[in-house]
Amino acid sequence: MRRYARRTVLALPAAALSILVSAAPAHADLKLCNRMSYVVEVAIGIDHQSATATRGWFRIDPAGCRVVAQGTLTADRILLHARALGLYGSSPAPQGGADTLCIAEQNFVIAAARQCRAGQTPAPFTQVHPTPGDDGHLIAYLAEDSEYDDEQARLAGIQRLLVVAGYDASPIDGTDGPKTQAALNAFLKSRGLGADAVQQPNFFARLIEAVQSPSATGLTWCNDTPHKIMAAVATDDGKSVTSRGWYRIDPGKCLHPDVTGQPRQIFSFAEAVDHDNRAVKYKDKALNWGGSTQLCTREAKFEINEQGDCGTRGLSAAGFAAVDMSAGGKTLRFAMP
């Protein structure tokens, strides 16, 4: 049975998570700041006197900060676990961490987080040592290997969501230029927004809304089922076929996989999963939407450039369906049989 328990987890290797050491006890609010090009959801773990609790999710936009614990924080250790929004598809691979604690799919507070119960799954947490900031908060930073500053992280985050929404703002590098401005202006025009909207606090929410709405151009997936759906896309540029996933599509939402360039052919595979991230079955068969073209996938997030011999390479094979894009845009609606 296919499992998707870790497909939405964001990579935070030790070198990428800024660990700022402080010898002082935690007597201030704890604030997390995001210097990544992804909108992330973060869970915190508090380890104190042999008791461990977890809480999540705290959503943080690129270049944004959020207070995740207020007042005097009594803790022997503070731990973090982060995941990118599922709409990013093949975002970084699962993070590592020395501690395995329990999380839940939706917002949660788990008092005894080392023994997972029904509806909870184990996840790796990384210990952090926040440092006092100038504003009086204790601060820890989430960062990428690109080492963006706040301005670069925000622009790279906008570029990334524009690409997912179908606008050509690549490369995603946090550097402004004519191509990024053209994509941004096209997006603003399509949504009836003025230039000042880019600086508004809800601009990332507007970008995400565009990504999760039907589109007249490119490929759009829409989830008309009561289940969460994990989807993968593949593109054939005439030289090789690249498969990429997984994208999470929540019930009642749509999503545009980030297909760049003009591939000769596009393929799609999608599967419904339950609250424990196991494949949903309907009449003893997995509830999925695909076709006859066998392409490689894996349980974690992936981008695979070589197809064939999936099993011998430690990969799985799934049947993808070819998508007719001759009309310039195609919406695939996933519904119950």
Rank of each mutant, 00 (worst) to 15 (best):
6 R>A: 13
13 P>H: 06
17 L>G: 10
19 I>E: 07
22 S>W: 00
23 A>Y: 12
25 P>N: 01
26 A>K: 04
26 A>G: 02
29 D>K: 04
31 K>A: 15
36 M>D: 10
41 E>P: 06
44 I>G: 05
45 G>L: 05
45 G>C: 07
51 A>S: 14
55 R>I: 09
58 F>H: 11
70 Q>I: 03
74 T>I: 11
77 R>T: 03
80 L>Q: 09
87 L>H: 12
88 Y>P: 13
89 G>W: 01
91 S>C: 07
91 S>Y: 14
91 S>D: 11
96 G>E: 12
100 T>V: 12
107 N>K: 15
120 Q>H: 05
124 P>G: 06
124 P>T: 04
125 F>D: 09
125 F>T: 07
125 F>R: 06
127 Q>E: 15
132 P>D: 10
138 L>A: 12
138 L>H: 06
138 L>V: 08
142 L>K: 01
146 S>M: 12
151 E>K: 13
152 Q>P: 10
153 A>I: 07
153 A>E: 08
156 A>H: 08
162 L>T: 03
163 V>Y: 02
165 A>L: 02
166 G>S: 06
168 D>H: 05
170 S>P: 00
178 P>I: 05
180 T>D: 01
184 L>K: 02
199 Q>C: 04
199 Q>F: 13
201 P>W: 08
206 R>E: 13
222 C>E: 12
226 P>L: 03
227 H>V: 05
228 K>P: 06
240 S>G: 04
245 G>P: 00
247 Y>G: 03
248 R>P: 00
250 D>V: 02
255 L>I: 05
256 H>E: 01
258 D>K: 05
258 D>P: 04
262 Q>Y: 09
262 Q>H: 13
265 Q>E: 13
269 F>H: 00
271 E>D: 00
274 D>N: 15
277 N>P: 01
277 N>T: 04
281 K>R: 14
285 K>L: 04
287 L>C: 08
288 N>V: 03
290 G>V: 05
291 G>D: 07
291 G>Y: 11
300 A>H: 04
308 G>A: 01
309 D>E: 03
313 R>M: 00
318 A>P: 00
320 F>A: 00
321 A>C: 00
325 M>A: 10
325 M>G: 05
326 S>L: 10
326 S>A: 15
329 G>R: 05
330 K>C: 09
334 F>V: 09
334 F>I: 14
